[in-house]
Computed example of a mutant assay.
Amino acid sequence: MQLGFIGTGNMAGAIMGGIIKKGVFKAEEIIGSDVFAPGREKTKAAYGINVTDDNREVAEKSKVIILSVKPQFYASAIEGIKDLITEDKLIITIAPGKSLAWLEEQFGKPVKIIRTMPNTPAMVGEGMTAACANGHVTQEELKYAVDILSAFGKVEVVPEHLMDVVVSVSGSSPAYVFMFIEAMADAAVADGMPRAQAYKFAAQSVYGSAKMVLETGKHPGELKDMVCSPAGTTIEAVRTLEARGFRSAVIESMKVCTDMSKHM
C-alpha cells in the first residue's frame, strides 16, 4: 500500500476517484479505513480500493496518509495512530480550522504535514484546493503532494494565514453557487420553463461564465458590462440585484464563513 485514507466519506471518495482516474495510484495501491461499515463498503464498491475498520492498519501500510474524517474527530484519529507515524510518512489533512501548529501538537513529535482545503467539485474533477506545508516537508515532497491533489482539479500553494479565507472563497462557496442556480431555476419555472430544463440552463450559464473568467483573463466587471446593453434586460436585472443587496450579502456571508473557520 502507498496511499491511505482515514475516513471514506464523500470528499475522500472524490479524491480517490480523481487519483485512480488519472492513474496517480492504482485502486489496489489505496487503502481506506472507516468505522461505519456501510460507508467503507460503498467506497470499496465504487472505487475498488482496499478497506478496513482499523485506522492503525492504514497508518502502518501507507507512505502518504490523508486524514479525511470530520474536524471534530481529528484529535481522536491522530491519537490512535501517532505512534505509528514515522519520519518518512507524509500526512495530508483536509479539515478547516486545524492549523499546522495544532496538528503538530496532536502528534507530539516532528511530522511531515501538508494542510489542504479541497472542495466538492473534486467529485467531477473540477476541484479547487489550497495547500500549505510545515517546515518538515521538503519542496520535493510538497510537489509530490500537489501532483496527487491535481488529480481532481486545480491546486494553489498558499501561505497558511490565507487558509481560512480559502474556506469561504472555495471550500464552502459551492453551496452558495448551488443556491444561486436553484434560485435562477425557480424563477425560470415560475415563468413556465420545465424544472429539469431550468436547472440545465442555469447550471450551464454559471459553468460557462466561470470558464470565461478563467480563460479570458478579463475582469469579472468587464465581462458583466459586455452583457449589459443600454436600457436592456440585463442591466435592469443587475440594478435589481444591487438594490436587494446581492453583492453585500455574498461578502458578508463569506466573512462570517471565514470567521467561523478561524474559531473551529
Rank of each mutant, 00 (worst) to 15 (best):
L103P: 01
L103R: 00
Q106W: 01
K109A: 04
K109C: 01
K109Q: 13
P110S: 06
P110G: 01
V111F: 00
V111S: 00
V111Q: 00
V111E: 00
K112C: 00
K112Q: 10
K112S: 00
I114H: 00
R115C: 07
M117G: 07
M117P: 13
M117L: 13
P118T: 14
N119P: 09
T120M: 13
T120Y: 01
A122R: 08
A122T: 14
A122N: 10
M123H: 09
M123Y: 08
V124I: 15
G125S: 11
G125R: 15
E126C: 13
G127A: 10
M128N: 01
M128G: 01
T129G: 06
A130D: 03
A130S: 14
A130I: 03
A130C: 15
C132D: 05
N134T: 09
N134C: 06
V137Y: 04
T138R: 02
T138C: 12
Q139N: 14
E140F: 01
E140N: 04
E140R: 00
K143I: 08
K143M: 11
Y144N: 05
V146M: 14
D147G: 06
I148G: 04
I148Q: 06
S150W: 13
S150I: 15
K154L: 14
V155K: 08
E156M: 14
V157Y: 05
P159V: 12
E160K: 09
E160N: 11
H161Q: 14
L162Y: 14
V165S: 15
V165Y: 11
V165M: 12
V166S: 05
V166A: 12
V166Y: 13
S168D: 10
V169G: 10
V169Y: 05
V169N: 07
G171D: 11
P174A: 04
A175S: 14
Y176I: 08
Y176V: 08
F178L: 14
F178Q: 10
M179V: 02
M179I: 02
F180R: 12
I181G: 03
E182S: 08
M184L: 15
M184S: 06
A185Q: 04
D186A: 08
D186T: 04
A187I: 02
A187N: 05
A188M: 13
V189A: 02
V189K: 00
A190C: 02
